[in-house]
Design a protein around this nucleic acid. Structure first.
Lengths: 213, 213
DNA sequence: AGTTTCAGTGAACAACTGTTCTTACAGTTG
DNA sequence: CAACTGTAAGAACAGTTGTTCACTGAAACT
């Protein structure tokens, strides 16, 4: 029975992931800022001093965590709209994918929602930069559609920023719904869906509105 | 020179306020959850043990703090729309008042934005309840206007929830703008204004849209 | 086969944490 | 004026914190 050979960097990568996972687990009930270094290493099953082999401090770990979370999620949502040519369909499809992904990675979303408004400046900046990029990419894709002929760049970004914000707020709200109340969660999603619908309607009449430009 | 006589409860109220102010000051860079009891009392200029005369623990202080913040702000915004009969005007006037109030009470808004998504459950519940009430009251007022004849309660709450969310997100974004970049702040406000305008347009066409009901 | 590299250990450190006492002393009450 | 009340002080408690250091042992390299 030849047990698997583990290279050095594989092992290192593994403990690094253990630290990230430990922090992720602990952050279900606290912020990044209120995490303790010993607390995290204890949860990860290593000795405190070993932490420094992987991160300078907890803020560093936080940044890595956020990059891991958003970096895996945003491409999925982006891919979900590939090939779609109707803007309304893009919005609704994105929402669907977001909700499915949310169910599978609640912890990751929770960290994003928490730290987007949290106390650690550098982490906030990383999140904002990534969300900004997501909004920009969405604007890129939409600008190619017939629905948006005549739109200028600024208005497009205004719209996609609004959509991204709504998506983020929806996830934050859903994460606050107790797990034993699926009905309430459905109600929240319904409301969000109608709010998106209202935005879509506003989008449809944006250019022909007297105050639109 | 008769020095002012200070009653017992006046003095107590005064130290209580000193604790709240101290926490408010410290929370510019950290969350409620990462505050220390000793840290707060040190900042307030009293001895740690005295804390317990005013609050059971820091979560209690947090609740008092958000109640103070929202309790003083929401009525102001509510009063700002008294007498107005045009719904578009109500939205824009509310935004104006919000921005003016924000400039005067940045610390309070920062706490609300932070803790709305923060780690302390009970504090989050208080904030959500107050914001929900604000949205409900706005729905009450709007329902009396001619603009909303034919609207049912659920759609109204959907709309006001959306508006409240947008206002909250705007304040959170503004608080993240470095104090030495007033231009960037203006840009953010402009975008938010156009986003509200888009929502207003959507509202205007909500009932006559094929998917509207 | 011998040497180097380095992720993880274990012990030690001073500093700080929340909480519990007893004590002091000024405003309040009869 | 004397007794009472209760805020705040001061000291002490056991735990926990972040960081450092010399170390071990196995993978990686020559």
């Amino acid at each position: 029975m030849a047990h698997t050979v583990i290279t050095r960097q594989e092992q290192k990568q593994r403990t690094r992931q253990a630290l990230l996972d430990a922090a992720l687990r602990l952050m279900e009930h606290k912020n990044l800022g209120s995490l303790g270094l010993r607390e995290v290493t204890r949860e990860a099953g290593i000795v405190p001093a070993a932490f420094y082999r992987h991160f300078r401090d907890l803020d560093d770990l936080g940044i890595a965590l956020v990059e891991e979370s958003l970096g895996s999620m945003l491409p999925v949502i982006r891919d979900a709209r590939r090939g779609l040519t109707d803007s309304d369909e893009i919005v609704h499809r994105s929402l669907e994918v977001l909700l499915a992904y949310l169910d599978m990675h609640r912890d990751h979303f929770r960290v994003i929602a928490r730290e987007k408004f949290g106390g650690v400046t550098r982490v906030r900046q990383v999140i904002n930069a990534q969300l900004q990029q997501a909004a920009d990419e969405l604007a890129d894709d939409l600008s190619l559609l017939p629905d948006f002929t005549g739109w200028d760049r600024a208005d497009l970004q205004m719209l996609t920023g609004l959509l991204v914000n709504q998506m983020l707020l929806l996830t934050a709200t859903l994460l606050d719904v107790p797990a034993d109340q699926p009905g309430e969660a459905q109600r929240v999603v319904d409301t969000a869906r109608r709010q998106l619908q209202l935005i879509i309607i506003g989008r449809r009449h944006w250019l022909d509105s007297p105050t639109g430009h």
